[in-house]
């Protein structure tokens, strides 16, 4: 089976399964599930965007939560000033986070290895402190989002409508992501990840392609942030906390980095795990920590890799 047709099947089956969540939740009278799965999909979008640079581009960005935060504030700040138009807010989220990624990327992509990890982390931390410093917008307490983004007749206050909007965005990103990684552009960033000196020797200057990928991933992360602010109807600098960056990264690894659907699986499994564990004990992180270590040490290819039995960087 070719990669393309396998992707189409996974996308169809997975999309259908996710589309059935709201009616099933309604039938079971458990509206909570709509909320939970929507949250999963929002983080899946963030994880897919990180995987574009982490899995395909080999850039270990430890500050991806920064874009989540920028996206959230891009919804919250206009809303605070009475601008509720969703096109404005979400457009701003994409633009502002893309711009931030452009600046952060321009400085950090010049470095490599552990420097890159630490710099992306430090930049995210810087934005986190900036968020705390925004006294007008609640400082470290953050602020309430008085109403969800307005999209004319599309009413995001309806849980199911909002759910399908998120699902549509996720599917769109997966289709687009699949195209991008196989395109000329995708081949360049994957080649630079695979063997950068060789990529340079055949005539590619990887910097600009990596930077472009970094900006794309940042913008996608920003949109995920805009969705997250609408999901929680609340936003705080904690959206940008470095543990959040670690979580998104873990989703990618857990699901299988360098695969298209791995990050989605990772996001769903991690949030499910957190949900189950936190119901059992308030100290669930003491269980999650060792699970994380075990996954890193023994299940390097991630769940999607194990499930699909496919080599990584393939489907």
């Amino acid at each position: 089976m070719t990669t393309t047709s396998r992707r189409a099947i996974v996308l169809g089956v997975g999309g259908l399964a996710l589309a059935l969540v709201p009616p099933i939740a309604a039938a079971l009278n458990q509206p909570f599930y709509v909320d939970l799965f929507r949250r999963m999909m929002i983080f899946a979008i963030a994880a897919v965007s990180l995987d574009l640079i982490l899995g395909y581009g080999g850039m270990v960005s430890f500050g991806h939560a920064a874009y989540l935060g920028i996206g959230a504030y891009a919804v919250g700040i206009p809303a605070f000033h009475g601008v509720d138009n969703g096109f404005v807010q979400w457009g701003l989220a994409i633009l502002a986070s893309g711009l931030a990624a452009l600046v952060i990327g321009a400085i950090s992509i010049r470095t490599s290895g552990v420097y890159f990890i630490m710099i992306t982390l430090a930049f995210a931390q810087m934005l986190y402190y900036l968020g705390i410093g925004l006294e007008t917008y609640g400082g470290d307490n953050g602020m309430r989002l008085t109403r969800r983004s307005l999209f004319g007749p599309v009413d995001l206050t309806n849980p199911a409508v909002f759910y399908y909007v998120v699902l549509a965005i996720l599917l769109l990103f997966l289709v687009a992501g699949g195209r991008v990684v196989d395109s000329r552009f995708g081949m360049v960033i994957r080649a630079a990840r695979s063997n950068e000196p060789r990529a340079r020797a055949i005539g590619f200057s990887p910097f600009r392609y990596k930077l472009a990928a970094f900006v794309i991933a940042g913008s996608m992360g920003g949109l995920a942030g805009a969705l997250l602010a609408n999901q929680t109807e609340y936003l705080t600098p904690d959206f940008m906390h470095w543990t959040r960056s670690g979580e998104i990264m873990f989703m990618v690894i857990l699901g299988g980095m360098g695969t298209l659907f791995g990050p989605v699986v990772g996001a769903i499994v991690l949030l499910l795990l957190e949900d189950v564990l936190s119901a059992l004990t308030a100290h669930w992180q003491i269980v999650l920590g060792p699970i994380l270590i075990t996954v890193v040490l023994f299940a390097r290819r991630g769940l999607y890799g194990l499930l699909a039995g496919a080599p990584t960087r393939d489907g």
Binding site: T4, R179, V180, D182, S183, R184, F185, G186, M187, V188, A191, A199, I202, G203, F204, Y209, A212
Partner: peptide, 23 residues
């Protein structure tokens, strides 16, 4: 094949193309 195709691509320009599969 992809190894060599990459080298061809590097010299035919236009790597900011995002949609069409290179293969």
């Amino acid at each position: 094949l992809a190894n060599v195709a990459l080298a061809v691509q590097a010299h035919t320009g236009g790597s900011f193309r995002f949609w069409r599969p290179a293969a």
